[in-house]
Computed example of a mutant assay.
Amino acid sequence: MGKQLIIALGREFGSGGHVIAEQLAAHYGLALYDKNILRDIAEQKAVSEKNLTPYDERPKSPFLSRTVRGFTNSPEENIARLQFDFIRERADAGESFVIVGRCAESVLKGHPHVVTIFVTGDLEQKVHRIMEREGLSKEAAAKRVEQVSRQRKAYHNHYCKEKWGDSRNYDLTINSSRLGIAGTAALLTAYVDARRAADPVK
């Protein structure tokens, strides 16, 4: 992999994937990109970040959008394309970073310095995590897990040929319920280190 390191981490809602991404970024001293990409885009376009946030990681509405000669009026699709461009530009510039979601494993497919990971989890533990984090009842948390996971799947599958969560599209797919958040992060660190050791800086 040489000196550059990019970790593209997809995750099921409630799996703890974002926390794991934070731990990996801290361990390697890398920038962490997720919804904060919108801040950079908002500054570039001279618009308010809060006007972009509602469209983050959402599939375009087939009822409220049109595409004519390659141009679309869908804010969801425009935001997605801007984020994809942001990810590619950072990767092509040689930057090392951790990127959460945003179809990064497909956007950067074939890039020599990318490690792709998908974090899943047992439903019961995902629901429990959301109950604690968002102060919801078990029933409400279960509905939230189902809703957000369905949204992420629809978003990913709209923009990518590869299917969301399909293990064949990632270097490693792992269930965080087995080892917990810290244990999963430690295992992933060992994997990344092994990958880097297998392709040392020439």
Rank of each mutant, 00 (worst) to 15 (best):
I7E: 02
A8G: 06
S15I: 01
G16I: 00
H18R: 14
V19M: 12
E22M: 04
L24I: 13
L24F: 06
A26P: 04
H27M: 05
G29F: 06
L32H: 04
L32D: 00
Y33W: 10
L38G: 00
A42K: 00
A46M: 03
V47F: 01
S48L: 06
S48A: 14
E49P: 07
E49V: 09
T53K: 13
Y55S: 01
P59F: 13
R66N: 12
V68T: 12
V68Q: 08
V68D: 07
F71S: 11
E77H: 12
Q83T: 07
F84N: 00
D85F: 11
D85I: 12
R88S: 03
R88M: 03
R90F: 02
A91V: 08
A91S: 10
G94T: 12
G94A: 09
F97M: 02
I99E: 01
A104Y: 04
E105G: 09
S106Y: 14
G110R: 10
H111Y: 13
P112S: 08
V114F: 11
V114P: 11
F118E: 02
V119I: 15
T120V: 05
E124K: 14
Q125H: 12
K126R: 15
V127E: 06
G135L: 07
S137Y: 00
S137N: 03
S137G: 07
A140W: 10
A140H: 11
A141Y: 05
E146L: 11
R150K: 14
R150T: 13
R150M: 13
R152D: 05
K153C: 12
A154D: 11
A154Q: 10
Y155N: 01
Y159G: 01
K163F: 10
G165S: 04
I174L: 05
N175M: 00
G180W: 03
G183R: 10
A185I: 00
L188W: 01
L188Y: 03
T189G: 13
A190P: 10
A190Q: 15
V192P: 01
R195H: 09
R196L: 14
D199W: 13
